[in-house]
Amino acid sequence: KIKETQSKFEFDFKSYMLEKANLVNQALDLAVPLKDPIKIHESMRYSLLAGGKRVRPVLCIAACELVGGDGLTAMPAACAVEMIHTMSLMHDDLPCMDNDDFRRGKPTNHMVYGEEIAVLGGDAMLSFAFEHMATATKGVSSDRILRAIGELAKCIGSEGLVAGQVVDICSEGADVGLEHLEFIHLHKTAALLEGSVVLGAILGGGSDGEIEKLRKFARSIGLLFQVVDDILDVTKSSEELGKTAGKDLVSDKTTYPKLLGIEKSREFAEELNKDAQEQLSEFDPRKAAPLIALANYIAYRQN
């Protein structure tokens, strides 16, 4: 049944993603112009406009449209979640954190601009995300904008994204159980996806019930993303993945296949996809199509 839905929307989904991602790219380009001091803004633009599928902003816009809002209303929030995602990568790649020299085939921000600029540019982007939401969101009541700002702040702070990063750092080399692994992924990956979807739903005028359904949806696909990632790492070749396969085994990272085995991990992924899509069952199926397709894309991707 899911496969059927997937094939039915596959083509539409691709063009939907491309169209929205293009709009997001244009909006991001305009939101962060080059100004003084040039180097900070250059560094922000370097990472922000480096490409990527723009999954978070598209989720934000799709959720806004799903609850009956105009997608453009959510554009500043969509840009904000991408800015946060980008700044967290800029800081994550630093030598004192993950120490990564490359991201998406390009030298990381601190390799090009220096560590101090990567820290400052990231901080500036973090605060700008809030400034942008507060000033650029049009056609929504102030109380909804404020609520969305509060939600974003919660999702990315010490109860959200940062909590995931901290627990991840602190459990390197430790024996990690299933619950612990789930905590890391629910915070490190799912929290910002949750924020993206919930911001869109708030700004689109969704009811509290709708917002909570979409919140559950996002948490499920966030976890799903990670489970699938872990499975691909052990089942695909480097060639198929476009990146080094088997990395998790080499680094002895705790993964779902390691804890559950491949078969059980696949079942868990199916279950998460089903849980996610069930949350959408009461919405207009036509309007829910982009989110259903996104869930299927995350579940069935081959790399």
Partner: peptide
């Protein structure tokens, strides 16, 4: 509406043309 202006003010003060620019 005033709270949105407060948030904007603080974000701008610490941001890329404010304190971060000074530090840079």
């Amino acid at each position: 509406t005033q709270l949105l202006r407060v948030i904007n003010e603080i974000a701008r003060a610490v941001g890329s043309t404010g304190m971060a620019a000074g530090q840079f």
